[in-house]
């Protein structure tokens, strides 16, 4: 592993994931239905540099969680490639993949489901240590587990307890300790705080930032909450119906969103400072992903849509400040909302 030349830790090239959601064969024949393919992710590309946090945001069904699971190897991509530290995961042998697994871990959304209820906390945190043979003697394992528990703000005494004895926030700390135990460089966080209360969410977000600074971690952060995303990320990617519509620096994307969907999402954020004022209500809902609109998937809800949007799918094009936008209107400079932040 002497390939640490590039600054790019993860590169995702045109990945797609299709799920076959058809009814069983017999039903299809009787009801004369076609096979139904759900394109959960349809051609997504991005890179993550070492030490940064890339967030993917979007509404339910936009495929952001599927991207997280593809990156972690929980799903096999239908096409495209995932390159982790210059190694293409698809070409890597079983041993090499097992080696790579040590270096990336995942934190899940539901702190109540992500810990095995029948295991003691110490055993849960030690699992990666034992699987990857990082520590083998019981004394060594115990010492490491104690240290991890302290790092995430719990007590070494908690190792003897069962998950149900902890609150949601404390469980998420246990999840983080488990994810950190194999000394990974890269963490995929799938909505890690959306099941938590705000005060606990603040604790976890602060902890994640502290750990990132301390260990130089790289995060892929999945969330539907724009405020959380704006707080934690370096760069943000906005997804809509399985595709990335805009990627840019956090500051830029919130100060000066380009894609109409990003603008719409942003105006929908509840703002505490605007007490009593109305949000800009957003028209329409996310279409059924089984039958996505032709052309740009956003066109039925887009105030700037015109003929070309209905037929031709826009690709991500580089925008002046290093960001990328997939929108015909922006490309043709028909919408110009370049306002100083």
């Amino acid at each position: 592993m002497i390939k640490k030349s590039s600054n790019v830790l993860l590169e995702v090239i045109d990945i797609a994931k299709e799920f076959d959601v058809s009814k069983p064969w017999l039903n299809r024949v009787i009801e004369r239905q076609e096979r139904q393919i759900l394109k959960a992710v349809d051609g997504v590309s991005f890179t993550i540099n070492r030490g940064e946090t890339l967030s993917l945001v979007g509404e339910s069904g936009c495929g952001k969680s599927t991207v997280a699971r593809l990156v972690c190897g929980l799903y096999k991509p239908s096409r495209g490639s995932i390159i982790f530290d210059s190694v293409n995961m698809a070409d890597a042998g079983a041993d090499e993949v097992q080696q790579l697994r040590k270096r990336f871990q995942m934190i899940f959304q539901d702190p109540y489901a992500s810990l095995n209820p029948r295991w003691r906390v110490g055993k849960i945190i030690a699992e990666p240590l034992r699987v990857h043979k990082i520590a083998t003697s019981n004394a060594d394992v115990k010492q490491r587990v104690d240290k991890l528990l302290t790092q995430v703000g719990l007590s070494p005494l908690d190792a003897e307890k069962f998950p149900h004895e902890f609150s949601g926030g404390q469980r998420q700390r246990i999840s983080i300790a488990r994810a950190l135990s194999s000394n990974p460089e890269f963490l995929v966080c799938d909505e890690p705080t959306s099941a938590l209360d705000v005060s606990v969410q603040a604790q976890i977000l602060n902890l994640m930032k502290d750990l990132q600074r301390e260990f130089g971690l790289t995060y892929l952060f999945i969330s539907h909450n724009l405020a959380v995303v704006s707080h934690i990320s370096t760069r943000v990617g906005v997804m809509y119906l399985g595709r990335l519509v805009e990627v840019a620096d956090t500051k830029r994307i919130f100060a000066n969103p380009q894609h109409p969907y990003t603008q719409m999402l942003q105006s929908a954020i509840p703002d505490l400072k605007m007490t009593g004022k109305q949000r800009t209500p957003v028209a329409g809902e996310v279409p059924n992903p089984l039958t996505p609109p032709t052309g740009c998937a956003f066109h039925p809800r887009c105030p700037h849509a015109f003929e070309r949007c209905k037929t031709e799918r826009p690709n991500l094009i580089d925008y002046e400040d290093g960001g990328q936008v997939a929108c015909h209107a922006v490309e043709e400079k028909r919408i110009n909302i370049r306002v100083a932040a």
Partner: peptide, 23 residues
């Protein structure tokens, strides 16, 4: 998610079946 976590950690299917799912 705890089963998926075990997969991400790199445990083999049989180990997951008996160590995680069975209990």
């Amino acid at each position: 998610e705890y089963v998926q976590a075990a997969r991400v950690i790199g445990r083999r299917p049989l180990a997951i079946m008996f160590a995680h799912v069975l209990p």
